[in-house]
Nucleic acid binder design. Structure first.
Length: 437
RNA sequence: UCCUCAGUAGCUCAAUGGUAGAGCAUCCGGCUGUUAACCGGAGGGUUGUAGGUUCGAGUCCUACCUGAGGAGCCA
């Protein structure tokens, strides 16, 4: 259209007084006779444009005046600081090129009014353009980038683990079964952890970061069937290292979001002071203490039982910080957890429960490094030994104490954004009763 | 899987067993500083599906479908 610079709306303040071009979509339009205010969205922000009939061609004015919501359009004009404009800057329109006008016979379905959950998620492919999902997904990106930056700058090597796996990593949970070739069955991974133990013995400190799948028929605000998890694993490491690294990671991620995505948090009306208050060290309690606290608060939990969702909420209400709970009964944890030497009935595992009732975002611990103990556990859990021979090899050849954890990305996003439901944390959520779009 | 609730215009919701209605969206008209703009007008319905009760059902009953909230399990 012209030789003026094409800019991103989020950088508009750098172009005050200059003529620029913005390529985007019509977010909303307010008309008032001979002056109109098209709100233009370009994926980085929303810019209020001003088109005055007397100042531009009649065609341009009429084109913009009759434009329909979410039509694609390239606008040229002068950026100007303006206190009355949302965002502080507006664009005095000089010219506009309509790329596609949405026909009024089939108007854009998501209007700037209230909609129900079902409608919005049926139109999720369009809903992503709206303010709220847009802000959440930008925070999600910042969280993922911070997680990678943290590990990459602390000596961890990214070694991703397979999505197709031959057997359960953790015996109990339900797996999605997939037809492989020649009658072979494989499963979608629910954790990269067992493979991480192999890569940690090769690289020292590793992490994997990818989607994981759980075929649990759970219908709650905390569950997806497909979700992303980052899982670090460290050779020559213990439970205490897991606590230290997960605490550092969480603080680093929150610091980054506060530094770079404050505007998005404000759009989401997140109470930012609650995030600013998150500081290491996090309180550390044992499973025993957690059970005592819960019983005092009226929970039915008995020693030996696992926490329910309500228990996690009750527990996190006790603290302003995320809380670390360690040394769980061996019976409720997976076969590979290292027992406590002093108390063999508990294992060296730790869960980190996010504050404000968001529940478990990190789970991990120290793994069994002794060959005979691991073999014994595999037998006690009735797991097929032949399938775990490669895993046992890690204890045959240069075994060493090692530890790691997994952090669920979606729960972390829900917590940091202050969301009620995890379905908002991912572009296209996969849930028990929703696989479309 | 179980428990609870809901389904009425494109969307969000009203309507005592007795003529299906409003706001937004769409269309037409008005407005030079609007902020989910406002003002006037128009079009828009097999009340989730199938049965049943009744003189009469959006409303009551049964089954099914779809969705939501919660439980168990988990990140």
């Amino acid at each position: 259209m012209s030789s003026v610079p094409r800019i991103a709306i989020e950088h508009a303040s750098q172009y005050d007084g200059q003529t620029v071009e913005i390529a985007g979509w019509l977010y909303n339009l307010r008309r008032s006779g001979k002056i109109i205010f098209p709100l233009l969205r370009d994926g980085t922000g929303i810019m209020q444009c001003v088109a005055v009939k007397a100042n531009i061609s009649e065609k341009c004015f009429n084109d913009l005046r009759d434009l329909t919501q979410e039509s694609s359009v390239i606008v040229r004009g002068r950026v100007r600081a303006e206190s009355r404009a949302p965002g502080g800057y507006e664009l005095d329109v000089e010219d506009a090129e309509i790329v596609q006008r949405v026909p009024e016979e089939q108007p854009y379905p998501i209007t700037p009014k209230e909609h129900g959950i079902e409608f919005l998620f049926d139109h999720r492919h369009l809903h992503l353009r709206s303010r709220r999902p847009h802000a959440i997904l930008r925070v999600r990106h910042e969280i993922i980038r911070a997680i990678r930056d943290y590990f990459d700058s602390n000596g961890f090597t990214l070694v991703d683990t397979p999505i197709f796996t031959p057997a359960a990593c953790e015996g109990t949970t339900t797996l999605f079964e997939v037809d492989y070739f020649e009658d072979e069955k494989v499963y979608l991974t629910q954790s990269g952890q067992l493979y991480n133990e192999a890569t940690a013995m090769a690289f020292g400190k590793t992490y994997c970061f990818g989607p994981t799948f759980r075929a649990e028929k759970s219908k709650t605000r905390r569950h997806l069937t497909e979700f992303w998890m980052v899982e670090p694993e460290m050779a020559y490491a213990t439970l205490e290292d897991v606590k230290r690294v997960s605490e550092e990671l969480i603080c680093f991620v929150i610091g980054r979001v506060l530094e770079r995505r404050r505007r998005e948090l404000e759009t989401l009306e997140r109470d930012i002071s609650k995030l600013e208050a998150i500081k290491a060290p996090f309180p550390r309690i044992s499973y025993d203490e957690a059970v005592a606290i819960l019983q005092r608060k009226g929970s039915e939990i008995q020693w030996g039982g696992d926490f329910g969702g309500t228990d996690e909420t009750l527990l996190s209400e006790e603290f302003e910080q995320p809380v670390m709970v360690d040394r769980f009964p061996a019976e409720i944890k997976a076969f590979y957890f290292q027992p406590d030497e002093q108390r063999p009935e508990v294992v060296l595992g730790v869960d980190v429960l996010a504050s404000e009732g968001y529940g478990e975002i990190v789970g991990g611990g120290q793994r069994i490094h002794d060959y005979n103990l691991l073999l014994q556990r595999i037998r006690e859990h009735n797991l097929p030994q032949e399938a775990f021979e490669w895993y046992l090899d890690l204890r045959r050849y240069g075994t060493a104490p090692h530890a790691g954890f997994g952090m669920g990305v979606e729960r972390t996003v829900a917590w940091i954004c202050g969301l009620d439901h995890i379905r908002e944390t991912i572009a296209f959520p996969r849930m028990l009763y929703r696989t479309r779009p």
